[in-house]
Amino acid sequence: MEALFTSITAVAIAEIGDKTQLLALLLACKFKKPLPIIAGIIIATLLNHAAAAWFGSLVQQWLNPEILRWLVGFSFIAMALWVLVPDKIDEDDNKLLKYGPFLASLILFFIAEIGDKTQVATVILAAKYDSMFMVITGTTIGMCLANVPVVLLGKLGVEKLPMTLIHRVTAILFLVLGITTLVF
């Protein structure tokens, strides 16, 4: 259960202000059809994070536990620094909007997650915990907790979030995860 709750928390918080959350807002404003957008987000996240978790579990098998602990700990600390750099939407993302809400969401979210903070976090979490299923479930729930409200509410109130504070709190969370991984 620790893998599930840590995965949910880490990804939900890291996702706030992330490129994919901005993408969710863009899709919600463009299509005004939340269900196909949410379905696309969920499927893209499951596929992307399953691949990331699989890779993380391979890393876990290749490395001895002591090296893995140091790698995971320092990776969490690196994530803490990375979270402080806010994302922006690429202009190329707008070209795929012609495919409709579900397909555009599926394609754009899958591509946007490649190499993204939450995908890297999924790799790290899968390397740290033995339960790939719990990590994938947790990271997907975390993505939904951060993105579904944005899709449902559209522009209402999203711009009023204290993004700098949220990024700092997220950085602190990853820093604490890194330090506890290294110390314990």
Rank of each mutant, 00 (worst) to 15 (best):
A3I: 01
A3V: 03
T6P: 09
S7E: 06
S7V: 04
I8F: 01
V11G: 05
I13F: 15
E15G: 08
D18S: 12
K19F: 07
K19G: 05
T20M: 04
T20Q: 09
Q21V: 00
Q21W: 02
L25S: 02
C29L: 15
F31D: 02
P34K: 07
P34Q: 03
L35W: 14
L35H: 11
L35T: 13
L35C: 09
L35Q: 11
P36D: 05
P36Q: 08
G40L: 05
G40T: 07
G40N: 07
A44W: 04
T45S: 11
T45H: 02
L46K: 02
H49P: 01
H49G: 03
A50M: 14
A52L: 02
A53V: 01
W54G: 12
G56E: 02
G56S: 05
V59A: 10
V59P: 08
W62I: 15
N64M: 11
P65R: 08
L68R: 10
L71A: 15
V72R: 00
G73V: 00
G73I: 01
F74A: 13
F74T: 13
F74R: 10
F74M: 12
F76M: 01
A78L: 12
M79E: 11
A80H: 02
L81M: 13
L84F: 04
P86Y: 00
P86F: 00
K88C: 10
K88R: 13
Y99T: 10
P101L: 00
P101H: 05
F102M: 07
A104S: 12
S105H: 00
L106S: 06
L108Q: 00
E113D: 13
E113V: 07
G115N: 04
D116W: 00
K117M: 09
V120W: 10
V120K: 10
A121S: 08
T122P: 04
T122K: 06
L125W: 03
L125I: 06
A126G: 02
A127T: 01
K128Y: 12
K128L: 14
Y129R: 06
D130L: 14
M132V: 14
T137L: 15
T137H: 08
T139H: 05
T139S: 08
T140N: 00
G142M: 01
C144V: 14
N147C: 06
V148A: 09
V150S: 03
L152M: 05
G157W: 03
G157S: 01
E159Y: 12
E159A: 14
K160A: 15
L161E: 08
H167M: 15
R168V: 15
A171P: 12
A171L: 08
V176N: 09
G178P: 05
G178Y: 00
I179M: 10
T180V: 14
T181S: 12
L182S: 04
